[in-house]
Design a protein around this nucleic acid. Structure first.
Lengths: 395, 395
DNA sequence: AGACCATAATCTAAGCCTTGAAAAAAGTCA
DNA sequence: TGACTTTTTTCAAGGCTTAGATTATGGTCT
């Protein structure tokens, strides 16, 4: 039925302001003239809106470009120091906290190792809060300049103020993670699935820039994905969409740690691959073990490629994406040598049409994009609302 | 990155006008007062907008309701005779053409049988055009009151003016179906996959009314689905999304008519079920054959239920829908006796969370919803644009 | 019956917003 | 220095929504 909202004349301005900010954020430095072209707004409107943004210090000037015999255009860009965002990656082996400026330059970071079978929620939250203090102290950024904290966790995050997290790998069932964190900090908090935060990072700055329909597959110890539909991340009715890891690719197949059978993850997640090769590895040892397996070679790898292809073909048939991106530490590792076989297997399982095959590429941001993606949740909110910094104060 | 468009003050009015029309269309008869509540607009705005709509005869009065001691409210509703829409179902056994008024009451219909291996595009188009003439003549509706023709076809419809259709069951490869039809009529034309048109019918008037995230599964001779994301049908980058029939549920499994192996459709489409039961049936004979199979019973049926459950669990994990609807003639037939086993199999294959299980229900509109859904494509355009009927004439 | 009350719909003044055109600003080139 | 270019800013005009006042329409009470 399509969302339609009442709008007042003022909403126009708010919307245009956000458009302009977005254009500046993603379109790099641009002059007012460029912005007219980019947004379709008239020169007058751009002029008054940018004046506001400059006044509020959200946007700053960034040099000039002279134009063949005319008034030189003044370049504008988002002020990277107008605010900061903290991104947290709660992974299986560590909690990593990073502080970024608005330009997504990392200003400081801190890591806390997690030992297997020690994923106590309180411990994780303690690390997280300590990490926030540490990155603030190290970077010298005052807490009040931080726009918020984004966290990527390896599980399903339920909508709601408590951000209940279901993470089978951690043994977390309905852990009120958001509530626990909020008890220790008053910064605005955004919690999402780690595969989704990574996906948003690839969507904004990586292999999916400008793509409006895509699937970003995250292969680590387990498997997840981010579905990008019409340029936005699709989260489903209870924010649980994209559980690619538990897609069934064989009736009554291998048992999965979720309790089911035949899950995609049980075959092509790092743990599943190693297990199929007869190797048992602790979560901290899986990276080197998989690297060794790739070096020495194994018949399991060819199977892996063809099974991944099978899974990706399912994504192609259901979503018809413009592109598929493979990320996550294991995905990137596998991709280095297996990308071609994966492409071939996907094509072999995809129904022939007149369309060219869907491009399958590796993530551009490396294995550490989860924290950056988490920080983009904060920036996204900033770009959406983009309310004047001191709005409350002046009221 | 989310769609953002420049808007002028006038777009506000256009948008609000469309909102109001939508509210009236789906919210049945309503007073201006009700509309204020439904849309959030002020009384003044509703008053002037409805005055326009009444002037243009798009909306008419529909009686009064007295309010405990006050001026009675005047009910308004969309004028069903303001325009008409033609819906066409191009199926495997027949071409069915139906004419609806704006209230989706069928005014007249015509069918043309197709014989197997006689799915020549020109023949189909000839039937279709003849059907349009017939329903117009039978109903007495003049062609200029028809807002457009919607067509549901059993295959992938490529975006573009020619509406290239790829339908493996018909042996159609890149058939310029849209161009062929347009050569014979000047009515506005909308061509889409039949599973999607059926899905839209269920979304608007059937089992998915008011649901914003859902999957509507169409099981006929083959299998397809409609993905509803955020209240709108998701079509993917090349309008090829929702090819559920070719989801792979077993590596190297049963051969499918698409040329692949292990496709969902090869197991649970009517043809696949009958084949697994050792029955070969022409497309026209599949209905009675499946009915007989269901009467006599067969071990194949239990397998079918559990395989459907497996497939539906994949939809749950990937899309996290609020609801799953099963439709299509075979789906409705199977559902009568197998709905419980299907629900159980889906639940068994779905990862446990704290969420209640996804409701799985049968389509409410019967097996003939494809044509009605095709007609809704026309109405959808009418509700979106909703430009005054005589806009061009007055200009 | 008449005064009074309740609810619905319309009218009106005020405030915003965008636009397009004109004016101003800031250079280049001869 | 003056003519010409190109970018920005300024400003009047037109359109839209809103809140509140006003009119319309019927019930209820005495």
């Amino acid at each position: 039925m399509s969302r339609t909202e009442r709008r007042t004349v003022r909403d126009l301005r708010r919307g245009h302001r956000a458009m302009l900010l977005r254009a500046l954020y993603f379109g790099g430095p641009a002059s007012r003239h460029d912005l007219c072209a980019a947004t379709g707004l008239s020169a007058g409107t751009v002029s008054t809106l940018t004046a506001d943004l400059l006044d509020e210090d959200v946007v700053i000037e960034a040099g000039q470009v002279d134009s063949d015999g005319g008034r030189p255009r003044v370049l504008l860009r988002v002020n990277p120091d107008h605010g900061y965002a903290i991104g947290v990656d709660v992974g299986e082996t560590q909690v990593r906290v990073e502080l970024f400026d608005l330009g997504m330059t990392e200003r400081s970071g801190a890591s806390y190792a997690l030992h297997s079978a020690r994923h106590d929620p309180e411990l994780v939250v303690r690390h997280l809060l300590e990490g926030i203090d540490t990155v603030l102290a190290d970077s010298g950024v005052p807490a009040e300049r931080v726009l918020g904290v984004g966290v990527g966790v390896p599980g399903v995050v339920e909508a709601g103020p408590d951000a209940l997290v279901h993470a089978t790998t951690f043994g977390w069932h309905a852990v009120p993670f958001g509530a626990l964190v909020r008890a220790g900090t008053s910064l605005p908090l955004f919690v999402d699935n780690g595969a989704k935060t990574m996906g948003q990072a690839e969507l904004w700055f990586g292999s999916c820039r400008g793509v409006s329909d895509a699937v970003i597959v995250f292969i680590g110890s387990g498997v997840g994905c981010t579905i990008v539909a019409d340029g936005a991340i699709y989260r489903g009715s209870a924010r649980a969409a994209g559980e690619l890891g538990h897609l069934k690719i064989a009736a009554g197949g291998r048992p999965c740690r979720c309790g089911g059978r035949g899950c995609f993850e049980a075959y092509v997640g790092a743990e599943g691959i190693l297990d199929r090769a007869g190797i048992t590895a602790d979560s901290a040892d899986q990276r080197p073990a998989l690297a060794r397996l790739l070096e020495t070679g194994s018949p399991v790898l060819a199977d892996t490629a063809s099974l991944i292809g099978l899974g990706l073909s399912n994504l192609v048939h259901l979503f018809d994406p413009e592109r598929i991106v493979i990320g996550g530490w294991a995905g990137l590792m596998l991709g280095e040598s297996l990308l071609e076989p994966i492409r071939a297997a996907t094509a072999a399982n995809t129904m022939a049409t007149s369309f060219p095959p869907v491009p399958i590429v590796l993530g551009a941001l490396g294995a550490d994009a989860v924290a950056m993606g988490a920080a983009t949740l904060v920036v996204e909110e900033f770009l959406r609302g983009a309310q004047p910094a001191g709005a409350q104060a002046t009221a």
